[in-house]
Amino acid sequence: MPYEWIEPANQDRDATPPVAELHCWPYRSLPRRDMVLFIGATATLVALPLLTVIGSPVLWGLLPFFLLMLAAVWYALERSYRDGEILEELRLTPDEISIDRHNPRGPDQHWQANPYWVQVALDEKDGPVENYVTLSGNGREVELGAFLTPEERANLYGELRDRLSAARQ
């Protein structure tokens, strides 16, 4: 799953131990290693027709377009990887809940509130995506895990609701 709960390690008695910590990130269907294999296979398949024109001036006319196409595919995949470097970190302590969202092209976003007053909501159909998870508190409403699948967001909602109620006790 593209999110994980990190259980707190044993800490000093003086420090306020976190109840839970959550990290969310977008799912990667094409790992970096496979991206290189994909580019190689694409180059091979597209270059096969060029074998028929080796030794003729037509090759030099088609070659720039072939290289431009490969560069465009490489750029598009790299851009997709950069855009997918989103990381959302939720930290829950008895006194505070906070979310830090690290955006790939933009400033980081931060939200915090008292967990006693935070409401967790799941909009099954009315949100921008199916099973839209939001937290509201401290005068703001923030989304969590909008890039997850609907099933993962529904699971996350249940887990987050349980951990939040445990932190309130």
Rank of each mutant, 00 (worst) to 15 (best):
A113S: 15
H23T: 00
D14H: 13
A72W: 10
P2E: 00
Q169P: 09
N10L: 13
H110S: 09
I99A: 00
E130D: 11
G139L: 01
D14N: 13
T42G: 04
V142S: 01
G40H: 01
R79Q: 13
E141L: 06
E124T: 15
D162E: 13
W25Q: 12
S136F: 02
I86E: 05
P128L: 12
D83Y: 08
A121E: 14
T42H: 09
A20V: 04
R153H: 06
L22A: 07
E152H: 11
M69G: 14
Q109K: 11
R13S: 13
T44M: 15
N155G: 03
L77I: 12
G145K: 02
P115D: 00
L48I: 15
A43G: 15
D95C: 05
L164H: 02
E141I: 12
E143Q: 12
F147S: 00
A167V: 02
L67P: 09
L164M: 11
Q169C: 07
H23V: 01
A166P: 05
L67I: 15
V120F: 02
S56F: 10
D95Y: 11
E88V: 03
W5V: 07
W60L: 14
L45T: 09
I86Q: 06
T149S: 15
Y3K: 03
Y27D: 12
V142M: 06
R163D: 05
S165D: 14
R28E: 14
V142H: 07
W117Q: 08
E96F: 06
S165N: 14
T44Q: 10
L67W: 09
I6D: 04
A146C: 09
A72S: 12
E89M: 11
A15N: 10
E152Y: 00
H23C: 01
I54V: 15
N114C: 10
R79E: 13
T44N: 06
P26I: 03
D123W: 09
L144Y: 00
T149W: 02
Q109P: 04
